[in-house]
Design a protein around this nucleic acid. Structure first.
Lengths: 122, 122
DNA sequence: CCCCTAATGATAAACTACTATCAATAATCA
DNA sequence: TGATTATTGATAGTAGTTTATCATTAGGGG
């Protein structure tokens, strides 16, 4: 990432505007608003360099392709809208997950996904 | 699923013996202990009919292929071992997830994944 | 014990997500 | 402005998972 191109500005713009975990497809569609001829390969290439530089990070989602979100945010979890398919961030964390862990098992990380309707769809 | 074959008995046996969410590959390897010539297509076919009959259900996992577990169990969540890659069930549930949900959003379901080391690997 | 056909194994094909290739384009700097 | 070369778009290719095909095998009723 040595040159500042319209494509990269558009992708960064979508991240900043949406502020939620985005699929490559969502990024493509969002970026094509300002750069209509953008191709999916450019999205993947840009995501790769943004990930390697630590600007964005991968979010693995159950039963869906990977999403990408801006790195460095406070600990949070995700809400997936069954209607529109968009995924949102939720601040905070359920406490006391340790009590779920069976004896002899060691907890290192955790993920929480809540499913339902977002404010636009409910 | 009209006939009771050695292959299907073997697959049901793996489910009952392991009692955790299994990948098609894990089911294949487990079933091949008793039916060595078993093919992957048979695993998928059997999973399809077991799913349609409501005997097993799909578990979507972040960043992994689908797993299958015996249906009808009490509400529970999953533990994934970073060392051996196996996934386990954990009884219970963290309470008070509702407070994570943003205003205007409606919660319908939730999933919790805990990552770490299982008792065999820790 | 036969026969019918459901079920199987091997493998090709489909599908999705992602990566590599390469000629054309455009950002940067002298 | 012109040259250099990073970047792009289009598309072929790759990888992993799941499904379809089809000749062969074997379950189970008669």
């Amino acid at each position: 990432m040595q040159r500042d191109t319209a494509q990269r500005r558009a992708i960064r713009g979508v991240f900043n505007q949406e502020n939620r975990p985005l699929t490559p497809q969502e990024l493509l569609e969002g970026a094509q608003v300002t750069v209509p001829q953008m191709g999916l390969a450019t999205v993947y290439r840009t995501l790769k360099s943004l990930t390697e530089s630590g600007t964005v990070m991968v979010v693995d989602v159950p039963g869906e392709p990977q999403r990408y979100e801006i790195a460095g945010k406070d600990h949070h979890h995700h809400f997936s809208c069954k209607q529109c398919g968009r995924m949102f961030e939720m601040d905070g964390c359920p406490g006391d997950l340790e009590r779920l862990v069976p004896d002899g098992f060691v907890m290192e990380d955790h993920e929480v996904f809540i499913y339902g309707r977002c404010s636009d769809c409910s």
